[in-house]
Amino acid sequence: MKNIDMTMTTTSKYSYFPGCSLATTAKENNASLIGFFKRMGIELDELPDWNCCGSSSIHCIDTNLSIMLAARNLALAPAGMPLLVACPNCLLRLKTAQLKIAEDKELRAQYEQNLGRPFDPDLKIYHVFDLLDQIGRNGFANRIIKRLDGLRVAAYYGCMLSRPPALRHEKRHNLLMENILEQTGAQSVQWSNASRCCGTFLSVVHPELVTTMVNDIHLAASAAGADCIVTACAMCHLNLEVRCALPSPVPILHFSELLALSVGDPKPDKWFSRHLIDPLPLFRSKIMKKDTRKV
């Protein structure tokens, strides 16, 4: 078995895989993430001409195709630079592909034939949380420009803390969002639905089923006294917004939006206009009135 590297290579430059959701439906997630890292002195170099990792669908109907689609992205990654992945599902697909190709000679031959370059089993693939974990430990607190005092957040992880058995030794980031947001002055609530799946594609095929689940998530957050739910995955964000059928839903914020806001990114209005549940009233009452700077 491959040794798991628990220490991260510290560098200020990463190649970056945004994934389809962040490139299209969740552009505000992408922009705030890139903005936040820029302010923290970390440069993200978007993987040139990346393709879809296969999403939640391709592995269902064609395992080999899903591995090879993810593999094309691995082949595009420049050598010696860690690959940073924003979407938890893309991360699973890319890591699974890397693991399978490293273990299987036939797949490796297929990789080299299709992609015309040798396979690099040592390419470091990190999720944004791996990087945030380090940032949260050193240097984040003294970079905070705008405090989020009084904002009560329900941190929502969805399925991102659950891993397939092959990846079970990788670091899990339980409570990462809570720990980092509390450094900004926000309060995190304890609630029951932090790790409940958002429903992914069943939102399209069985909207009634997902509506029940999403309503439950909103109700649990309200019951715990949260002002908003904070998500780490663009798919969760979309489902929690689109499938909530309650008269007064809780605003859903991308974790990256709060991070960027707290280190002084001046553009949240632009991001918030892309939300289906408008978070602006919450921000006007909770955050902006405490600060004379224009948000």
Partner: peptide, 17 residues
């Protein structure tokens, strides 16, 4: 119906994927 959220495999005591 399974969406591969891995809730099951993370809880499985026999680590079945």
């Amino acid at each position: 119906t399974c969406v591969a959220c891995n809730t099951c495999s993370a809880q499985c005591p026999m680590a079945i994927d």
